[in-house]
Computed example of a mutant assay.
Amino acid sequence: MSNRERIYKIDQILNNKQHITMADFIARLEVSKATVKRDLQYMRDNLNAPIIYDRDSGIYRFESQKAGMKYELPGLWFSAEEIHALMTMQHLLAGIDSGGLLGPHIQPLLARLTGILGSKEDSMDEINKRIKVEVIGNRKFNLEHFQIIGSALLKRKRLIIDYHARSTDQTTTREISPQRLVYYKGNWYLDAWCHLKGDIRSFSVDSIKCKETLETKAEDIPDKKLDETLSEGYGIFSGSNIQWVKLKFTPERARWVASEKWHPKQKGDFLDDGSYQLSFPYSQDPELIMDIMKYGSDVKVVEPKALKEKIHKILIEAVRNY
């Protein structure tokens, strides 16, 4: 049991049992008398713990706190190793947080952790030097709109937004009930009930401009329905028309693909020749086609036939235009 764990334990013991002897402390904490006395003194000197010892009865207890004296245990206590890990994670978050969404909230915690660490060894400068995060392809986000979306989402309020659909290059004004934010392949998406369409939609956050937060309570859609509409098929914009795709990867590529997660319901098997066969559900195919084609000749679409023919046509057209 570490020092901090013992201090929390001592606090718990004194709060639950108003009178306790040194023998009780030693038995409960499984440490020496000297260690208990050192912990009690630390709590008195550094945390203003109102611990007193009654010599006549041989017991320890909390007394009423004096005016101006405040005693409370820290909300978070970290060892040096934990602080190093947290600072490293902050650096990684900063690397993928291309829109600067988390930075303003993480920096105060980072400053606090750096202060607690109190050492030049393994400082943030050293972490920055030793850890490199390269993120390619992420889009920038408008911090103002992201915060408005997040606030409306948690407060269960409706939003009036202008949404620019890149596929049609059209902007529409919609009233939506935010359901959940999703971070997917380097970008943020908002799952919401669209009152204009009367259906569930997934919106790319960087294409949203918030016009107004309404006081109207957001429509709550059950998680099961959200998952059935948005999570059953492959990709971020899935849908309800589900079918299964079966892909076959070459033995050379199989060693990588076998450890990849394409879908929560995927099924994969190594074949006798060392190739890898992967199956999973999908509905809309644009994203799936892009992900299949990036493997080039290392992948073959086994089924469905329609998807295989579609990719074949795309490849023929690409050769013509090359």
Rank of each mutant, 00 (worst) to 15 (best):
L247T: 08
D227F: 15
Y234S: 06
K246E: 05
E219L: 13
S240I: 15
P251V: 05
E252G: 02
A218K: 03
L214E: 11
W244Y: 13
D220Q: 11
T213P: 05
K248D: 10
D206V: 05
D273K: 04
Q266F: 07
G274C: 08
P251D: 06
L247C: 14
K267M: 03
E228I: 09
V245I: 13
G268P: 02
W244D: 04
D273V: 01
D223S: 15
F237K: 01
R255N: 08
D273H: 02
D220M: 08
A258E: 12
Q266Y: 05
F270T: 02
D227W: 15
P251M: 05
D273Q: 03
I236R: 08
T216G: 14
L247Y: 04
D272A: 14
E212W: 12
E219A: 12
F249K: 01
F237A: 05
V257D: 00
K265E: 14
G233D: 00
K261L: 12
E212N: 13
L271F: 08
W244V: 02
L247Q: 06
P222K: 09
K224T: 09
C210I: 13
G235H: 01
A218P: 01
L271V: 10
W256L: 14
Q243C: 12
E215D: 15
E212L: 13
S204V: 11
S231N: 12
I236W: 04
E232A: 08
E215P: 01
S259Q: 09
K224H: 10
F237E: 00
L214Y: 06
S207Y: 10
E228Y: 09
E232V: 10
W244I: 00
L247R: 08
L214T: 13
C210H: 09
R255G: 06
P222D: 06
K248H: 11
H263N: 02
G235R: 01
D227P: 05
K248G: 01
K224Y: 07
E228N: 13
N241S: 14
S231R: 14
I221G: 00
V245P: 00
E232S: 08
L214G: 01
S240T: 15
A218N: 07
L247E: 01
C210W: 10
K265N: 14
L271S: 08
Q243K: 15
E232P: 01
I208K: 02
F270Y: 09
S238D: 07
A254W: 02
E260S: 11
G274H: 07
V257C: 10
E215T: 10
G268V: 02
S238R: 03
W244L: 05
E219M: 12
S204P: 04
P222S: 11
P264K: 06
S207Q: 14
V245C: 03
L230P: 00
E228V: 10
R253L: 12
D272Q: 15
F270M: 06
G268R: 03
G274Y: 04
A258D: 08
